[in-house]
Amino acid sequence: MVNEVLFWIVAVMTVIPSLSLLFAKRPVHIAMSIVTVMVGLAAAYVGLGAPFLGVVQIVVYTGAVMMMFLFVLMLVGVDSTEDLKETIKGQKWIAFAGSIGLAILLIAVIGKVTVQPRNEGPVGDPYPIAIQLFEDYVLVMEVLGFLLITSAVGALVLTHVPRLKPRRAQVDVAKARVLAGADPVNKPMPGVYARHNALDIPALDPEGKPIEHSVSRVLKIRSQTQDGAEFRAQLEDPGHPGNVAESKDGDDK
């Protein structure tokens, strides 16, 4: 016989979350409710004398199938809420009516059946299941093998992207940079070779010309740079105090 309390727990645990399929907006919430349904069904299986199946249900459905659903939901964007507005007018009600009709029909025909369940019977432990599986159903098992190959091949065909461009190592990246005429190493720091080491002064190259791109773009956009003309003027003016001091230093040597 079947435990009545368990039945009602299972019924509540499966029907209510499964209604989220119809009314919940976020797919992730739906997926999590279906996980609950699967666990409830596993409990039902154990209660119906199928402990092996109960465990398989947990492993396969909550462990693999529903996690895969969640994974794909994450992939396509969890936040995508669904627009429940119907596009074909009245379709919603036809679908509702059809499904309720189906439910009523099924319940009516099933409710009419009166069977006396056999009280004793084999329990679906792994051992008896395995015996029967490989005695009576061994061909089905073999065909299932082909089914699994098909699904693996199919998933690869539809989702696997092979390497389409040659692999780029660090050496290739560096070579490409040099070829493109970019700086092979760091950009020059602003103001390093100049007489003035503020961030807003371009550095000077060995010929004494300013290197414009050594100054941050941001400062240029804000017009907060100096072009260095003032300092060049200093350089060229022999009477400038700074120059004098320098030359004195030179004399001291």
Binding site: L106, V109, I110, V113, V115
Partner: peptide, 9 residues
């Protein structure tokens, strides 16, 4: 017996 309903469905 009385199971013709589910059989037919």
């Amino acid at each position: 017996g009385d199971k013709d309903g589910i059989l037919l469905t």
